[in-house]
Design a protein around this nucleic acid. Structure first.
Length: 425
RNA sequence: GGAGGGAUGGCCGAGUGGACGAAGGCGGCGGUCUUGAAAACCGCAGUGGGUGAUGAGCCCACCGGGGGUUCAAAUCCCUCUCCCUCCGCCA
């Protein structure tokens, strides 16, 4: 959500930025509505002022037992005109905020111009994709051969695009969750938070899942609750409608949750395996930052997410999204993509974004520089650290052995009773 | 699920339809006193919006949300949401 005042002050900046994003919108029309709105507000307030003054007068007159009928008649006349104007203001405001809520965030200055994902820029690449001296299997085949991956029964008890694993495969996923949480809390300085998986409507509006992305959500209609598509939703909403202390910034949280997505419109894409599913595990990083520090924080957050892949020894690259591929609320986004032999390419495993004050304004999350200064909006950031299901897939594929086993990355062994290979003992 | 009680500033907590943006206390900030601190005393402090210049000032709105009654609502009425207590059920 943008600040109407800022748009009013720098309309050209917004026009330019939206053009870069390929978003067509008539800023001038918005400003016309705003001007009309302000004129009406001034008008209504003058009438309210008159009404307030005369009403007080009535109080005095009655106290002194004097006749107030003439004044009452006058006030009534004034009061009658107020609702009309207010109705007009309300309609305008509804239209304005409706429009405003459709306008995407403006890209940061160093975001490359581009039309779609083909114009994204590779920022850095880490690790060499392994050269196999045998034909590597996709992770779903490895899982199936081990007998520990059971999509059929997942379909039976839920529906397609659900995952079910047993034994060592389940253990691997649990180990990864613990490893990631330990790394982010003990080494990278995040505070772990465990949050509700079901949230209310206001929370979904706060981070922008509603109203635009309703189709992507699982909904518990009876109780008016929604299953979270990412921990970003409950965690960023922690401080909705609050004013934070400047000394507490930045606030850094890491949260493991299951995530639920309907994946509407993705039929036929990534249908096999655990890459695109309705329920998956994710460890999420969320930061609340000072405005002037948020881009620094984005770099370190991205590094924190990368550190997991480095320690696990999984080759990856970091992509800077271009203006055309940027998500609705983000000012700048790095995608981290892990090497997957079955795709013979890189696949997204984390997306790290700075939203500047776009989400904070919507959620009204502010801080004060000191006692007497005006509250300002914080900047919010988040990124996966990492998507756990996809990390499982990456480990299976990248660490598979010729005889159908999977080597366990060194750092993970202490989380798996010291085992070196997944399917043994 | 049943019965009842609540929601007021950073926190606690008063509040009679008319000078209430709201007593009092705690906490905060500034000062006096003190070598320093504490105590005591004095003073300052909400949020959003309109108009000014992103200043001062003036004005409007805000006592959980929405609606209503009234010249006038924190106060009366309706409604929704949330919280609490007791009973029932339950991991």
């Amino acid at each position: 959500m943008h600040d109407l005042k800022k748009i009013r002050q720098n309309p050209e900046i917004f026009k330019e930025a939206l053009k870069k994003r390929g978003f067509d919108y008539d800023i001038d029309h918005l400003l016309e509505m705003d001007e009309k709105r302000r004129k009406l507000i001034a008008e209504a307030q003058i009438l309210q002022e008159q009404r307030n003054k005369l009403s007080k007068e009535i109080g005095f007159l009655l106290k002194e037992k004097k006749d107030a009928n003439e004044v009452i008649r006058k006030v009534k006349e004034i009061s009658n005109r107020i609702p009309e104007i207010e109705k007009e203001i309300e309609e305008l405001e509804a239209k304005i905020s409706q429009d405003l809520s459709q306008i995407p965030n403006i890209p940061a200055e160093d975001v490359p111009f581009g039309k779609d994902e083909n114009d994204n820029v590779v920022v850095r690449t880490w690790g060499e994709p392994r050269k196999f001296d045998f034909d590597p299997l996709p992770h779903w085949e490895i899982g199936r051969i081990s007998g520990l991956y059971d999509p059929e029964r997942a379909v039976k008890i839920a529906k397609s695009r659900f995952v079910l694993t047993y034994g060592a495969l389940a253990e691997l996923e649990r180990a990864l969750i613990n490893f990631m949480l330990d790394q982010h809390t003990k080494v990278n300085g995040y505070t772990e938070v465990m949050v509700p998986y079901l949230v209310n409507e206001s929370t979904m509006y706060g981070t922008g899942q509603l109203p635009k992305f309703r189709d992507e959500l699982f909904i518990c209609e009876r109780d008016n609750l929604y299953l979270i598509p990412t921990a970003e939703v409950p965690v960023t909403n922690l401080y909705r409608e609050e004013i934070l202390n400047i000394d507490d910034l930045p606030k850094k949280f890491v949260s493991y949750t299951a995530c639920f997505r309907r994946e509407a419109g993705s039929y036929g894409k990534d249908t096999k395996g655990m890459i695109r599913v309705h329920q998956f595990n994710k460890v999420e990083l969320v930061k609340f930052s000072l405005p002037e520090k948020s881009y620094e924080e984005l770099e370190s957050l991205t590094n924190d997410a990368e550190s997991i892949l480095k320690i696990l020894g999984l080759p990856y690259r970091v992509i800077l999204l271009c203006t055309g591929d940027l998500g609705f609320s983000a000012s700048k986004t790095y995608d981290i993509e892990v090497w997957l032999p079955s795709y013979n390419g890189y696949k997204e495993i984390s997306s790290c974004s700075n939203f500047e004050d776009f989400q904070a304004r919507r959620m009204n999350i502010r801080f004060k520089r000191d006692r007497n200064s005006k509250p300002e909006f914080v900047h919010t950031l988040n990124g996966s650290g990492l998507a756990v299901g996809r990390t499982v897939a990456a480990i299976l594929e990248n660490y598979q052995t010729k005889d159908g086993n999977v080597q366990i990355p060194e750092a993970l062994r202490e989380y798996m009773k010291g085992k070196k290979y997944l399917f043994s003992n």
